[in-house]
Amino acid sequence: MKQQSFSSLEQAHKKKRTKREVFLAEMDAVVPWARVEALIAQHYTKPRKGRPQMPLSAMLRIYFLQQWYGLSDPGAEEALYDMHSMRDFVGLELGRDAVPDETTILNFRHLLERHNLTQALFAEVSAYLEEHALLLRGGTIMDATLIAASPSTKNKAGKRDPQMSQTKKGNQWYFGAKMHVGVDAHSGLVHTALMTKASVHDARMTDELVRPDDRAIFGDKGYVSDKRKRAARADGVLWAVKDKRKRGRELSSAQKKLNRKHGSVRAKVEHVFRVIKCQFGYRKTRYFGLAKNTAQMFSLMALANIFMARRRLMDQSV
């Protein structure tokens, strides 16, 4: 047992737990730490000179804190010094343990990006959820959401990010990227995620979001395709994409009724976007270019799946 400081003892005996402490305790209980650390260990643990390497478990937890609370590398370092709940989650004790500086946190993130480990993390979490019968097969809900990017030109090139683009939604123009997801129609958990520039039309990503064994496909009017509809019906697949009014024609009452019926199922896809944008605060890209932002997207999706399934995972562990 490591000796606790007076500050930690005071925290342990306080009368109320904060929302952050409750959230972190839940995540600590449901994240498959051993499996995730095993993915990264072969790339992280290397003989080195100089000061001792920070434990992988601590660096991984700091990286997850960055995703949950929208922390930059310097912001993560500041938060560890400032918040006892975050230090406790990471397993650090001021006065006894070294707090990693922003460069160490940056290097760990670059390690994950360089070896495509966030995509492997997403795949491992998906496998973990499938083993617990939470991520199922049979039906997919497709959708996309816009993620704003900085329009700043204060860089060496004097231009906006060339891998981002403009698109119009309604009467408003947006600049940034687009996040495409395929969600399990039963559980509402994400099984496929992609990121493109904002100008890419939703329907272009249909084939990448649908699994080969899906027997039902749901989507909004952006995925309308008569060709895909005929092909799905020929294969015995339920094509549950909302019908779109054609020029000079109105939707029939039967089409409107069917749209409402399919829409009640399709609404599950909005839950993951609520978690990403409202719970985790990811409304704007943090990095330059699609590669780094795509790497972060896989981390966010893996953690969003765990967050949405946390109650069921905790019930199964009892």
Rank of each mutant, 00 (worst) to 15 (best):
S150M: 08
S152W: 01
T153R: 15
T153A: 07
N155W: 03
N155L: 06
N155V: 05
A157Y: 02
G158E: 08
D161A: 05
P162D: 12
P162K: 13
S165V: 03
K168I: 11
G170Q: 13
G170N: 14
N171P: 00
G176P: 05
G176I: 10
G176S: 09
V181D: 01
G182P: 03
D184T: 12
D184K: 12
V190R: 04
T192W: 01
A193K: 03
L194G: 00
M195I: 14
K197L: 00
K197W: 00
A198V: 08
A198C: 05
S199H: 11
V200E: 06
D202A: 06
R204W: 07
M205D: 00
D207Y: 01
V210N: 06
V210H: 03
V210I: 15
R211T: 08
P212C: 10
D214I: 07
I217N: 05
I217P: 02
F218Y: 15
G222V: 11
Y223C: 11
Y223G: 09
S225R: 11
D226N: 12
K227H: 10
R230P: 00
R233W: 04
A234P: 01
D235I: 00
G236Y: 08
A240R: 07
V241N: 05
V241D: 05
K244E: 03
R245A: 15
R245I: 06
K246Y: 03
K246D: 04
R249P: 00
S252W: 05
S253G: 02
A254K: 15
A254R: 15
K256F: 02
L258C: 08
R260V: 02
G263F: 05
S264T: 13
S264N: 12
K268N: 06
V272M: 10
K277V: 02
Q279H: 10
Q279Y: 02
F280C: 10
F280T: 09
K284P: 00
R286I: 04
Y287K: 04
G289V: 06
G289N: 06
K292E: 02
K292H: 08
N293D: 05
